[in-house]
C-alpha cells in the first residue's frame, strides 16, 4: 500500500515539477498539461508496440510534450491570445492527436509487452525485494530529474526565466525577448509532463486518451500542498523537493479516498470533486496564513 502511494506520487511528481515551472516560476497558467500528459503516454505505448528502444521512446515522449508546450507558447505570443485560452486550444487539439497516435483507438494496453519497468524488475529481481524495486527505481528517476531541473535554474538562462515570472519588464530591459523565454519555459514544462505520462502508461499498463483529464488540478493541488509544508524559500532545490513531496502527499489523500471513502458512501467517481474541494481548502488555509502574517507584522510595527 505505502509503496503504491509513493510510486504513484513519484511518477506524477515529475508532472508536478512541470506544473510548478509554469504556474510558479513563469507565472504562465498553462492548461496544455491535460493534453500533453496523455500525449506522453500515447507516444510511449506506440513506441513500445513498434519495438522502438525504450529509452529512445522516453525521449520521443519528452520531445513530443515539449513541442505541444511550444505550440501553446507560440499561439499566446504571436496571436496575442491569453495564455489560458492558448493552453485550452492546444489541449483540445491534442485530444484528436492522441487518438491518432494510438491508431484511432481511445485505449491501448501494453500489459503483454516489455517496458522499462518490466526490464528493471527482471534485472533487480532477487537482489532487492520485488515490491521495492519499482519504488527504488522511481526514487532514483525523480531525484535525477529534480537535480537536473535545479541545475538548469541556476544557469544564466534558468535564472532569467525565473526573473521573467517575477518581472517581465526587467527581462526586456536585459535585451532578452520574453517570447523566446516563454517558448522555452512552457516547452520544458510540458516535456516533463509528457515524460510523466510515459512512465504512468508503463505503470498502469495502458495508454488512454482520458488519462489527462483533471491532471492540471492534481498538479496544482500537489504544488500547493508542497508549498504549505515548507516555509517560503527562494532556493530552487527546496521548491522542487516540496513539489515532489506535495505530489506524494496528494496521492496519499487520494488513496485514502479511494479505499476508505466507502465509509462515507464515497465512490471513485467523487474523486474529482474531492480534488477540487482540497484545492479550495488549501486556498483558504493559505489566505489565513497570509492574514495572520500581516496581523503579526502590524502588531510588531506598532
Amino acid at each position: 500500500m505505502i509503496e503504491g502511494i509513493l510510486v504513484e506520487g513519484l511518477i506524477y511528481g515529475i508532472m508536478v515539477l512541470g506544473v510548478f515551472i509554469t504556474f510558479r516560476v513563469l507565472d504562465f497558467p498553462d492548461l496544455t498539461v491535460d493534453g500533453s500528459f496523455p500525449l506522453g503516454a500515447a507516444l510511449m505505448v506506440q513506441c513500445i508496440l513498434l519495438d522502438v528502444n525504450l529509452w529512445l521512446a522516453l525521449l520521443v515522449a519528452f520531445i513530443g510534450g515539449m513541442l505541444a508546450g511550444m505550440v501553446t507558447a507560440l499561439i499566446h505570443n504571436h496571436l496575442r491570445v491569453p495564455n489560458l485560452l492558448a493552453g485550452i486550444l492546444t489541449m483540445t487539439m491534442l485530444y484528436s492527436v492522441n487518438i491518432r497516435i494510438l491508431g484511432n483507438r481511445a485505449n491501448v494496453p501494453v500489459l503483454e509487452h516489455e517496458t522499462i519497468l518490466t526490464k528493471v524488475s527482471e534485472r533487480f529481481s532477487g537482489i532487492i525485494p520485488d515490491e521495492y524495486i519499482l519504488l527504488l527505481f522511481f526514487i532514483v528517476v525523480a531525484i535525477v530529474i529534480k537535480i537536473l531541473i535545479d541545475l538548469f535554474f541556476r544557469t544564466d538562462l534558468g535564472m532569467t526565466l525565473g526573473a521573467m515570472g517575477n518581472n517581465e519588464q526587467m527581462v526586456i530591459s536585459q535585451g532578452v525577448d520574453p517570447k523566446t523565454l516563454k517558448t522555452i519555459g512552457v516547452g520544458l514544462s510540458n516535456g516533463l509532463v509528457a515524460l510523466s505520462g510515459a512512465f504512468a502508461a508503463q505503470y498502469l499498463g495502458f495508454a488512454d486518451v482520458g488519462l489527462g483529464q483533471g491532471i492540471i488540478v492534481s498538479g496544482l493541488a500537489s504544488v500547493m500542498i508542497g508549498e504549505f509544508l515548507v516555509m517560503k524559500s527562494n532556493r530552487i532545490g527546496v521548491l522542487t523537493l516540496c513539489a515532489i513531496l506535495g505530489s506524494i502527499l496528494f496521492h496519499a489523500v487520494l488513496y485514502l479516498g479511494r479505499y476508505y471513502g466507502y465509509v462515507i458512501h464515497m465512490t471513485p467517481n467523487d474523486l474529482n470533486l474531492i480534488k477540487g474541494i482540497l484545492i479550495i481548502i488549501l486556498l483558504i488555509l493559505t489566505q489565513a496564513k497570509k492574514l495572520k502574517k500581516v496581523a503579526i507584522k502590524a502588531v510588531v510595527e506598532k
Partner: peptide, 9 residues
C-alpha cells in the same frame, strides 16, 4: 550582461 542567456553558470 545584456542579450540572450545560455545554459552556462
Amino acid at each position: 550582461r545584456k542579450g540572450f542567456k545560455w545554459l552556462k553558470r
